[in-house]
Design a protein around this nucleic acid. Structure first.
Lengths: 114, 114
DNA sequence: CCACTATATTACCATACAGTTGACACTAGA
DNA sequence: TCTAGTGTCAACTGTATGGTAATATAGTGG
C-alpha cells in the first residue's frame, strides 16, 4: 500500500505546484517536443513558435522543478527530460477525455440515458 | 499503442485545462475529501476550512469539467466523484516527489539518511 | 579588442483567478 | 405567512503569471 494516502497540506502544495507546471499549453508543447530527445532553446523556439525569452522562462521553471536537465555545448544549451512520467499523467488525462467524448457522442446519438 | 502520441494544439489545451483544475491546493483538498464518499458543501467547508462561496465556486469548476456529480436532497447538495483516476495522477506525482526527496537526501548524506 | 550568436534575466503590461462580500433562491419548519 | 439554514451567483480586490521588449551574459571567431 502506498504511503501517500495521508495527504498533508504540505504534500498537497507540492502536488499542486507540479500540476501547475503542467497546466500551461506552452510548457506541455515544450515537454512534448523534448520527448523525442534533447533539444536546444532555439530548436524549441522553432517547434513551439514561442519567443526566445518565453521559452527560456518556461525552461527555467521546468528545470527548477526538476523536469529537465541541462547540458551546455558551445553557444548552445541542450535540455532533456529527466523523468518521462510526465506523459503517464497526460495519458491518464487523455484516457479520461476520450471516455468523456465517447459518452457525449453516445448522448448525441441516443445511446445514453435521457 | 495509444492514439494520443499525436498531440494536437486543441488536445494540449484540454489537457492543460484539466491540469489547471488540479493545480490548486484548495481543489485538491476538496477532491481528497470526496475520496471518502459524497459530501455536502457544508461538510466540505468544515473539512477544508474554506469559505462557503469559495467551496461552491471550486465545486462549480470541478463539476463543469466533469470531476463530480451532484445530488440535491432537501436543503443539502451532495457532491461525489465521477472518476477516481484523479488520484492516479496524484500517485504518480507523489512517486516522483518521493524519488526526488530520496535523491536529495542521498546527495546530502552521501547515500542513506544521516 | 570588436562583432555576432545563443541564452538568460529584468522590467513591464495585461489577463486570469482565488478569495471575500453581499444579495438572492430555495427549502424546511414554526 | 415569517424565519433560519443551505447553496449559488455577481461584483470586487489583490496577487500571480504569461508574453514581450530591452538588456545582460556567455561563447565564438575575426
Amino acid at each position: 500500500m502506498q504511503a501517500h494516502t495521508r495527504l498533508t497540506p504540505e504534500l498537497v502544495d507540492l502536488i499542486a505546484e507540479r500540476f501547475k507546471a503542467l497546466a500551461e499549453p506552452a510548457r506541455l508543447h515544450i515537454l512534448n517536443a523534448l520527448r523525442a530527445g534533447e533539444k536546444t532553446v532555439s530548436e524549441l523556439m522553432e517547434e513551439t513558435g514561442l519567443g526566445q525569452a518565453n521559452v527560456s522562462k518556461h525552461l527555467q521553471l521546468l528545470h527548477g522543478l526538476g523536469f529537465t536537465e541541462r547540458r551546455k555545448e558551445g553557444l548552445y544549451v541542450y535540455y532533456r527530460l529527466t523523468d518521462p512520467t510526465v506523459f503517464e499523467l497526460c495519458d491518464i488525462v487523455c484516457g479520461r477525455l476520450d471516455r468523456e467524448a465517447r459518452t457525449r457522442s453516445d448522448l448525441v446519438s441516443g445511446r445514453g440515458s435521457s
